[in-house]
Design a protein around this nucleic acid. Structure first.
Lengths: 149, 149
DNA sequence: CATCTTGTTGAAAATGAAAATCATTTTTGT
DNA sequence: ACAAAAATGATTTTCATTTTCAACAAGATG
């Protein structure tokens, strides 16, 4: 319930209104898996709420991102994706190029080295993005089996 | 001249033809600064070659990427960018969110830690992308001046 | 060199995701 | 409940990218 309340709080502070649609979209966003696109969430919501329009899903996801509840991610497929970002700290992604699985990870060592690199160039970091693309354990096994045949 | 030849070689091997336009576009790509978008390269080329169309620039850049001479990059601005990738090894980017300056860097330490992270999750890395966004030295100075006034 | 085949070109149209528009509806404070 | 302000959802617009297609050029062949 904390999520709903913090969204309501954000809405209130910004003179925005708590509507049924926003609640439905927030619920769907929270219960669906992470890293989903507007299109995917829209389709999920449509199943139970045929009245909610694409534009509203799009706007609400942007709102969630602005409020800090969601984080936008851009992977390579041309779709903006959103993940729950609430209290968690920054994390990066391992992405399987075969099955599309996305794994989150954190690595303070990498972050520290990034700071060093930035400092060396006189940069002050605002944010960063690290994506590692490769084959996940499962897909590596499948590949071996395929070759064995 | 090596670049031109290796592009010609690629074209030949794939049953494609070496045309005047492709030569012009390759030349422009090589002599222009790195990290340019199709639009930017198109405009540069137009100055001396008004006859070359946007679609041709776009197709040729894709060809260059396929041939390995260019590498596609996606930063946050919604434009696909291309950089010369020839013999250089992998590198990452520092991007100034104020002036748009892009600085390349390499950091073996970060790469090593990435390998560790991947191994921990059973991944085999194919490629990765690290972008650090922040304010460059120049823009930090400007900001200070602004505040001083 | 002429001819033929095949790939290429450039203008224009199509595509697709994201964002904007606008008449109507809903929420909220009084 | 009422008025003011914001939200909704269907549709349109935007913008980068990609495709289409008729005319053209490159390279092979006779």
């Amino acid at each position: 319930m904390t999520y709903k309340n913090s969204f309501r709080e954000y809405l209130g502070k910004h003179g925005l209104k708590a509507t049924r649609q926003r609640e439905v979209i927030l619920d769907a966003f929270l219960s669906a898996g992470s890293h989903l696109s507007t299109e995917e969430l829209y389709r999920t919501i449509r199943e139970k709420n045929p009245g909610i329009g694409y534009a509203t899903v799009h706007r609400t996801l942007k709102l969630l991102a602005e409020s800090g509840l969601a984080a936008q991610r851009h992977f390579g497929d041309g779709h903006t994706r959103y993940e729950c970002s609430s209290e968690e700290q920054h994390h990066d992604h391992l992405i399987c190029t075969v099955c599309g699985t996305i794994i989150e990870f954190e690595n303070p060592g990498i972050e520290r080295l990034q700071e060093q690199v930035a400092a060396r160039h006189g940069f002050v970091i605002e944010q960063h993005r690290l994506e590692i693309y490769g084959r996940c354990a499962g897909c590596l096994v499948k590949k071996e089996k395929k070759q064995a045949i």
